[in-house]
């Protein structure tokens, strides 16, 4: 029933068609501003357009209040870039998530990434009450139910157009318990994750270890896995991510490369040092993509260049991922829509 209603696609999003056509997908990331300035979104969308197949629109990332992902996503759609709406369980209960996502669908959004959300203690409203009515798996289940069963979470029928999203989830291959991580991924796939975007990967051998288990469980055949990468801006950032961010694994070798990138450059020449670091950060990302691309089951990369959207172009070009492919046109909808 649902297949007929949806032209054979789950949502028919550009991302879904790219992946289904077997192309190596590229997704980017666009962080909305801490203001109501839509021009910031437009400018970032212009930078990313053409260099990624879709861009994640973050949802109060790191628990800092920003323009809503659906609001920003609306502008992104207008700019011709395809958004992946991030939705966290931290700020909304099941009523709010269903209503916001029905609105997002009506506004032309077709991809959703279902997330738990960073704890509010990390953000700028640490005294806030969090929600966590659902967890990310239950959010996935709810959105699958709305799409494939035409049911609200409570079991009531959606009488009318159901929100049909290509549904994603996050995976952190480096969180603990390490041995459990593939099984947690399996649960997300079982809950209905059509695609997975991973946490930032710097330690490729450890990610390969994780992927071996993913292969054993056959998960790479049931979902599209996009490996997360992101350019480092400085040795300080590399060290901070290595030492301070839980769930991130940055090998010393990467930190050393960032540190030695400024060798031979005058310490006072801050501009040249900054450029050298950024150039090395981009080069490391390109090399990581080339290695990750060879791993069986990696269907694309998710390039997280937060507040450095300009880096996406040289990374995607350097990794040989340009031009981005044209997508298969959507077939005409079946007339059996029941509307």
């Amino acid at each position: 029933m649902t297949e007929a209603q949806s032209n054979g696609y789950k949502s028919g999003s550009r991302l879904e068609r790219i992946l289904r056509d077997g192309h190596f997908a590229v997704t980017g990331e666009l962080g909305p501003p801490q203001s109501s300035n839509g021009d910031v979104i437009r400018e970032k969308a212009k930078i990313l357009l053409g260099y990624c197949d879709a861009a994640n629109i973050t949802d109060n990332q790191t628990a800092i209040v920003r323009m809503s992902s659906v609001g920003a996503g609306t502008i992104v759609v207008q700019e011709g870039l395809e958004p992946i709406i991030q939705m966290t369980c931290r700020d909304r209960n099941r009523l709010a998530m269903q209503s916001d996502l029905m609105g997002a669908y009506a506004l032309g959004m077709r991809n959703v990434l279902c997330l738990t959300g960073d704890h509010q203690s990390f953000g700028n409203h640490p005294t806030a009450k969090n929600v966590h009515d659902l967890d990310s798996l239950q959010l996935l289940q709810m959105m699958v139910g709305m799409r494939d069963e035409k049911l609200f979470q409570c079991g009531d029928e959606i009488k009318g157009i159901e929100p049909r999203f290509f549904l994603g989830a996050a995976a952190n291959p480096f969180g603990d318990p390490f041995e459990y991580r593939p099984y947690r991924l399996a649960k997300k796939v079982e809950a209905g994750a059509d695609f997975i975007q991973t946490q930032l990967i710097y330690n490729v051998p450890r990610f390969e270890e994780y992927m071996e288990k993913v292969h054993d469980l056959g998960l790479h055949e049931k979902t599209y896995i996009l490996a997360g990468v992101g350019p480092l801006k400085s040795p300080g950032m590399a060290k901070y991510m290595r030492d301070q961010v839980p769930g991130l694994d940055v090998p010393d070798e990467i930190v050393d490369r960032m540190t030695t990138a400024t060798k031979g450059i005058d310490k006072e020449d801050k501009k040249a040092r900054r450029e050298a670091w950024r150039s090395e950060g981009i080069q490391i990302t390109i090399e990581l993509i080339q290695k990750l691309r060879d791993i069986e089951g990696v269907c694309g990369v998710h390039v997280m260049a937060i507040e450095w959207e300009e880096a996406v172009k040289p990374i995607v070009e350097g990794a040989g991922l340009m031009p981005r492919p044209e997508v298969t046109a959507l077939p005409a909808a079946s007339t059996e829509t029941g509307e």
Binding site: R90, H119, L137, N172, D176, K187, Q199
Partner: peptide, 29 residues
């Protein structure tokens, strides 16, 4: 669990510790 998760640990579990506080053990670990 700081996020009341019912289906396993979030990505912030490291070495048995919850990301929100070095004195808090990760319930899912």
């Amino acid at each position: 669990c700081a996020k009341q998760l019912l289906n396993g640990p979030c990505g912030g579990s490291q070495d048995g510790i919850c990301e929100i506080d070095p004195d808090t053990l990760c319930a899912w670990q």
